[in-house]
């Protein structure tokens, strides 16, 4: 067996086989213990439910994606700018960073009703909640990137009589990119979750369409368990799409030069 075939085998075949085994186990347990479908639906029932509910789930997914995208963009944009301020000025960092930590310690479940009070039910609150969940990893990582600039490189810029703006543009920002992208990856994983949780806590069906979180509540109250599981499936797919997008960006920006990407022979 060639090494490339072997590696492909372990990348795709092993997880697929494990998944297949778990699905079989699922059917077996359901049959043996005679679990009713409103408690634990069978995998095919979930797929059927997802198909039958597609006229609700698809628009709901779009609503959630919109919330996640907006919240994620805000987290990345604000996070980057804030990190820049923190990374460039030790004084700003000393005065602001502890407060950001305090904010981060605040559970979303407590923030959510406050946002609803301020912004009302619906998209603005959902975006705010997604933002709150995603912005800290961006700030923490990117700040680290701005701070950990190679000392010699900084002195090189001093020798060149570089201005602060030049140092930022040619040294600190490109140097912080790997850190920024790592923060972005974490935020990307959290964004769909944030949007669903936000929708769950602050969502509304204004205009007839709620997000995935809203649908979860609705299916739960109707005891439509297969459909409830189907929302989980949709959330999973959304998460992969988001992370895939960020991974692609990561690869685009770093694959030529960064240690984590280049193939060393």
């Amino acid at each position: 067996m060639s090494p490339s075939l072997r590696s492909r085998l372990s990348t795709y075949l092993l997880p697929a086989a494990t998944a297949a085994a778990l699905i079989v186990l699922w059917y077996v347990l359901k049959a043996v213990f005679q679990v009713p479908s409103f408690v634990l639906p069978a995998p095919h029932e979930i797929l059927v439910a997802a198909w039958e509910e597609r006229s609700f789930l698809w628009p709901a997914a779009l609503v959630t994606v919109r919330g996640a995208l907006l919240g994620f963009s805000a987290a990345v944009g604000v996070g980057f700018l804030l990190a820049m301020a923190l990374g460039f000025s030790p004084r700003v960092k000393a005065s602001l960073y502890p407060l950001i930590l305090v904010l981060q310690m605040m559970p979303v479940t407590i923030l959510a009703p406050i946002f609803v009070l301020w912004l009302g039910q619906g998209l603005p609150s959902i975006v705010a909640i997604t933002f709150m969940i995603g912005f800290f990893p961006v700030v923490a990582n990117t700040t680290m990137g701005f701070i950990s600039v190679d000392r010699n490189l900084r002195e090189l810029f001093v020798m060149c009589n570089a201005t602060r703006a030049q140092e930022a543009r040619y040294l600190r920002i490109p140097g912080a990119m790997p850190y920024f992208l790592t923060g972005m990856k974490i935020a990307g994983t959290l964004a769909p979750i944030g949007a669903i949780v936000g929708d769950f806590l602050a969502g509304s069906a204004q205009g007839g369409v709620g997000g995935i979180g809203y649908m979860t509540i609705s299916y739960f109250s109707q005891l439509k368990t297969p459909a409830l599981f189907a929302t989980g499936l949709v959330a999973c797919v959304m998460g992969f799409v988001f992370v895939g997008g960020v991974n692609w960006l990561h690869w685009r920006l770093l694959h030529l030069w960064h240690d984590s990407m280049v193939k060393k022979e």
């Binding site: 010699n152 002195e155 020798m159 040619y170 030529l256």
Partner: peptide
């Protein structure tokens, strides 16, 4: 003047 550092101090990107 110019300074040549102990390690090459190149920008990896």
């Amino acid at each position: 003047m110019f300074f040549v550092f102990q390690d090459a101090t190149l920008m990896p990107w």
